[in-house]
Design a binder for these strands. Structure first.
Length: 217
DNA sequence: GCGACAG
DNA sequence: ATCTTGTCGC
């Protein structure tokens, strides 16, 4: 059995350094979406840089690296931080905000992978997950497509649903929950209910295995 | 003690 | 996340 006390201490330090209630950027124009897929001990990570004004992908990159750490709920960063940092380093058009596939503040210690990535690289991040790790939804009514997520008496994130998918959004670092929701909703409303750049990053990670020859794309 | 548990 | 056939619904 592995001892996660060190990883836990890292997350607690990360939470102290993180900023959840301020926006480092006032008018973001470039938003990057990062995602990772796995095959045996290899991780294929991808990034799609999206122009909010034009509603288009302006850059895409992918890379393949080895991973050793197993996936453990609550300690996702141990497994996925390296693939994420590796592919982010390939980006030429540095984004104003980075969307990470996973939780940010909505985490047992308020420091999910999105928060860890943001503090580590000192970039604004948003956490976007498909399942809750902690907390429970509180919807005002059945019609509302945006609900708050409560844990231990505080709002830790929000759910946003379209007719295509349901996402759990939380602040990562340097992007408030309100701004995070605003960005996510503006994208899905523009692309038929799909978080377009994240979908593209996801497709890249799953379709580049066939013609992978070392990673770069 | 038991169940739940981001990707 | 990944491994995977047939099957249900529009």
């Amino acid at each position: 059995m592995i001892d996660y006390s060190v990883a836990k201490a890292i997350q607690e330090e990360t939470r102290k350094k993180a900023v959840f209630n301020q926006d480092f950027v006032s008018n973001p124009k470039l938003v990057a979406a990062l995602d990772v897929s796995y095959k045996k001990s290899k991780a294929l990570s991808a990034v799609a840089v999206y122009n909010l004004e034009r509603g288009e992908i302006v850059e895409a990159k992918a890379t393949l690296i080895d991973v050793k750490a197993p996936y453990v709920p609550g300690y996702f960063f141990l497994r996925e931080i390296n693939p994420l940092v590796a592919v982010y380093g390939l980006v030429e058009n540095k984004p104003d905000v980075v969307m990470i596939n996973g939780h940010g503040y909505s985490h047992p210690r308020r420091a999910g992978i999105a928060t860890y990535f943001g503090v580590l690289l000192s970039v604004p991040t948003i956490g976007v997950a498909r399942k809750l790790l902690v907390g429970e939804e509180q919807c005002r009514n059945e019609r509302d497509d945006t609900c708050i997520v409560i844990d231990k008496g505080e709002i830790i994130g929000m759910s946003v649903r379209s007719h295509i998918e349901k996402l759990y959004v939380s602040s990562g670092h340097g992007v408030s929950l309100e701004t995070s929701i605003s960005i996510v909703k503006s994208i899905i409303e523009r692309h038929g209910g799909s978080l377009y750049p994240m979908k593209i990053a996801d497709l890249i990670t799953k379709r580049c295995w066939a013609n992978e020859q070392g990673g770069k794309h």
